[in-house]
Each structure stands twice: as structure tokens, then as C-alpha cells.
Amino acid sequence: MKIKHYFLMIVFISLVLVISACGSESSNKSESSQEDNTAEASDTVTYESETGPVEIPANPQRIVALTNAPNVHALDGKLVGVDQWTKSNPLFADDLEEVAVVSENEPETIMAQDPDLIIAGSHMENLEELKKIAPTVIYTWGKLDYLSQQVEIGKLLNKEEEAQEWVDDFKQRTAKIGEEIKAKYGEDVTVTVFEVDAKNFYVFGDNWARGTEILYQAMDLNMPEKVSQDALEEGYHTLSLEALPEYAGDFIVISKKSSEDNEFMQSDTWNNIPAVKNNRVIEIDQEASTYSDPITLEYLTNIFEEAFLGE
């Protein structure tokens, strides 16, 4: 009995030692894993911005985007704060439902989100104050073209390859659509992009959103000479209802709010435009068309492809 008791004691002590060793090893692994995660979260890189080098998180987890929020969203950036225009855009409203609305004029709204990266525009106020909250990268609107801007956001988020792949694919697909449109309607076919609000009409050049980059740059379609003269350099031109026929091309893209009074569409001036008579008017939602990020561009490309080439 003594021998048996002694043997059981040996086995028990051995088990305790084994369990203790395993627990220690597991604890060490857990601590090591936590250290690795902390190190990854705290890793920084130097981003060469237009205002100089900025030390930013290698993989930002809490981004406040006062500008270019749709570009960040298209790359699945982890947004915690956006401007009110992005928040209210119907293309993003559902995805950004839990994201806060912030403003550079109210830095406390930004600070409340505890950001680890802020993206701002060079025209904005309080930039120096924003830099005290978190690393702040500044962009000047129009300094980069719409596709280069997306690649630049890719660099910022450590997703440059993903951004470039989308750009290359988009350029190839839209160029092909443009060729098919010209083959169907002629090399000289023209398109005009109008917008209407409560007070004015506008005609746009080739880089003012509303699909202008797609039509004139990516698809290489033509704008009427009058549009080129008055809107290409400035980006847009304000005009009256009576002047619309002077700027109208073979096709018209009209950007408007469905909630607005579109009484002009009942006028003789509008209905006597050849493109209107020929049922060559493409209506787009103004509130969903004011950006040139991948999500918006894909949305509008689908509309244009169907309108020009659909049965």
C-alpha cells in the first residue's frame, strides 16, 4: 500500500509540473502575441505628403476624413469621422451609418473620435490645431487627377497595389465602352453635362464630377465647342434656361435632385433641344454624383453604359 501511495504521489506531482509548464508556455505565447499586436498597431511609417513628410500609423485604425472620405471608404479604410456631405450621400449612407459627422470648424468633434489619422484639405481652417490631435495629411483639391488621387490614398493606407489595380482595370473598361459608343453613334458624337439647382443651370468641363471624368477623360467622348470654350478651363459655367440649347450636345446628362422642382423640363426651351426630342437625355442623381471616387465612378459608369449601349 505504501508503494502504491508513493507511486500515486509521484504521478500527481508530475502532472502538476506538466500543467504548470504548459500554462507558463501558453501565458508566454499570449503575452508575445499581445506584444506583436501592440507593436503592429503602434508601427509608423513616413508618408511623403504635399506639405512634407508626416509620421503616420502603418495601418491606421481610426481615420477622420474631412476630405476624400469616399476614396478612403472605397479601400475599406477604417473611418470614424467624415464630412456631412459624404455622410448624406445616398451611395454611402448605409455603410457609414455608424460613422460620426465632424467638421474642421469644430475640432472638438474630431477629437471626440480619438483618431490616429486625419485627412484634410489645404483650403480648410484650423489645420495647425488638427495636427495637435493626430497626424494630419493635407491634400489640395485638383492637384492630382481623379485616378492619381485614388492611388495616393492607397499609398496613405498601405494599399497602393490594390488602388493601382482598380485604376488600371477601370481605365481599360471605360476606354472600351467609349470605343463602342463612338462605333454606334460616330466618332464626333458630343455629350453635355448640365446641372440644375433651385436658382441656376450649370454646364461642366471634364473634371467636375457628375461623371465628367468618365465621359470626357476615360471614355474620350467629345464636348460641344461652346462647352469647351466656357467651361473647360474653369470647370463649370453658370447659364440661364434660355442658353441651354447653345451648349447642348448630341446627348445630355442632366444632374438634378429628385426633390427639387424640375419645372424647366416642361418648358418649350428644353423640349425643343434636339437631344431631348431624340430621347437622348440621361438623368443622374445630383446627391450621388458629386464625387469621383471608385464607388461613384462605378455607379455612374453602369448608368452611362446602359444609357448609351443598352437595348
Results as ranks from 00 to 15, higher is better:
176 K>F: 03
176 K>E: 15
177 I>V: 15
177 I>M: 11
177 I>C: 04
178 G>Q: 11
178 G>K: 11
178 G>S: 09
179 E>W: 01
180 E>I: 08
180 E>Y: 10
181 I>T: 01
181 I>R: 00
181 I>Y: 00
182 K>C: 02
182 K>H: 03
182 K>M: 01
183 A>H: 02
184 K>T: 14
185 Y>A: 03
185 Y>K: 03
185 Y>L: 04
187 E>Q: 14
187 E>Y: 05
187 E>T: 13
187 E>I: 05
187 E>H: 08
187 E>N: 14
187 E>R: 08
188 D>A: 12
189 V>T: 15
189 V>S: 10
189 V>W: 09
189 V>P: 06
191 V>W: 06
191 V>S: 04
191 V>M: 04
191 V>I: 14
192 T>I: 10
193 V>R: 03
193 V>I: 15
193 V>K: 03
193 V>M: 08
195 E>N: 13
195 E>A: 15
195 E>G: 15
195 E>V: 02
196 V>C: 01
196 V>K: 14
196 V>Q: 11
196 V>D: 00
197 D>F: 01
197 D>S: 05
197 D>E: 02
197 D>H: 02
198 A>D: 13
198 A>G: 05
198 A>S: 14
199 K>P: 00
199 K>I: 01
200 N>Y: 12
201 F>Q: 09
201 F>N: 10
201 F>E: 08
202 Y>A: 10
202 Y>V: 06
202 Y>F: 15
202 Y>N: 12
203 V>S: 09
203 V>H: 10
204 F>Y: 15
204 F>P: 10
205 G>K: 03
205 G>P: 05
205 G>I: 09
205 G>W: 03
206 D>S: 13
208 W>Q: 12
208 W>E: 11
208 W>A: 12
208 W>V: 03
209 A>T: 14
209 A>R: 11
209 A>S: 14
210 R>L: 09
210 R>M: 09
211 G>Y: 05
212 T>N: 06
212 T>F: 10
213 E>I: 00
213 E>K: 05
214 I>F: 07
216 Y>F: 15
216 Y>V: 03
217 Q>C: 00
217 Q>W: 00
218 A>P: 08
218 A>S: 15
218 A>K: 09
220 D>V: 00
220 D>I: 00
220 D>S: 10
221 L>I: 02
221 L>C: 00
222 N>T: 13
222 N>E: 13
222 N>I: 01
224 P>D: 07
224 P>W: 06
224 P>C: 06
225 E>F: 09
225 E>D: 15
226 K>C: 04
226 K>G: 04
226 K>Q: 14
226 K>V: 13
